[in-house]
Amino acid sequence: MSLELRNVSRTFDGKTAVQNISVSVKPGEIVGLLGTSGCGKSTLLRAISGLDNDYDGDIVINGDTTKGIHDTTGFIFQEPRLLPWLTVLDNVTFGLKGKKEEKEARARQYLESVGLSGNEHLYPRQLSGGMAQRVAIARALVTSPEILLLDEPFSALDAFTKMQLQDLLLDVWKTYQSTIVLVTHDIDEATYLCDRVIILRGQPGEIDREIIISDQRPRPRGSERLASYKAEILDSLDLNKR
């Protein structure tokens, strides 16, 4: 599913958070949004999701410019946001429609793919942070969203779980060819996952540059090529003081 932003700006009470963002995302592309804190990444993602409709400009999802939440969009928030009164299984089936057995069968399948089979009947309070985030990921993926928005989905996790979940995301992407927009603070994550990294800068945030990473996946972590992309990104963020 294609996604296009045309001159999108968002102003909060007279203060502009992002301005003139134009991006065109091809179906099945993984785009990373990178930028310093407060430059409007979350704001942009919320506008794409339809949770926030008070932006200027157009957001076109598969040719459709109507504002609002689309059926085909899934959002993985920065926090798990599980409903604490539902079990893991019920949390995952939460957004599904149809017969109970079918919903649960589907949910179980996704719980298995995030490595959580056997934990269906636990409540969120009984989960570790990484488990909870994996449930949230399963909950977003189970609806097979054609557009998947992720706001720093792995940032609260330890390095090891993080890598596991990044690979899981790639697996899912391979199977469903979802279009993915990923907000991240982690440059290694961006170079590992994305086809294209968009760097936002300034306040109000504007697109500073785009870096295209066309390397074949799976990309070897810590390879020199990824390191050179990282250096390029750090340069454009002005963090690589020589």
Binding site: S49, F77, R81
Partner: peptide, 11 residues
């Protein structure tokens, strides 16, 4: 509000 947003995301 965050939980309500989850609900809204599922329409």
């Amino acid at each position: 509000r965050k939980l309500i947003e989850v609900g809204r995301m599922y329409r």
